[in-house]
Amino acid sequence: MPNPWVFIGLFIIIAAIIPIGAIVVALILGPKKPNPIKQSTYECGLETVGDSLVQFKAQYYVFALAFLIFDVEAVFLFPWAIAMNKMPLYVALEGVIFIVILVAGLVYTWRKGALEWV
């Protein structure tokens, strides 16, 4: 079969069916005696206070932003890395320039203090 994604699609479907099967079997075999106390939110023996959706600090967002940029960078670098074997030295230098430009962004983020957790 020419398209490898046929195999991977089948693999994904079967890899989902097996955990579902295990969970369904456990649902059938296990006892079912729900009560409000049992189904309340677990919190170290104390009653839960307030909404569980607490507001998070902005730092998570900043790290996710930096991650997004470097992830896209890495995606660009993979075709470069593959092509490099067959190409002369200047191709390697092109990639080096690409990385150096982005490292400047990392330096900016660092100097701005955005990489500190607190």
Partner: peptide, 12 residues
């Protein structure tokens, strides 16, 4: 043991 445990889902 895992198979015969009760499955508890929080109400919320």
């Amino acid at each position: 043991k895992l198979l015969i445990k009760e499955d508890i889902t929080p109400r919320t």
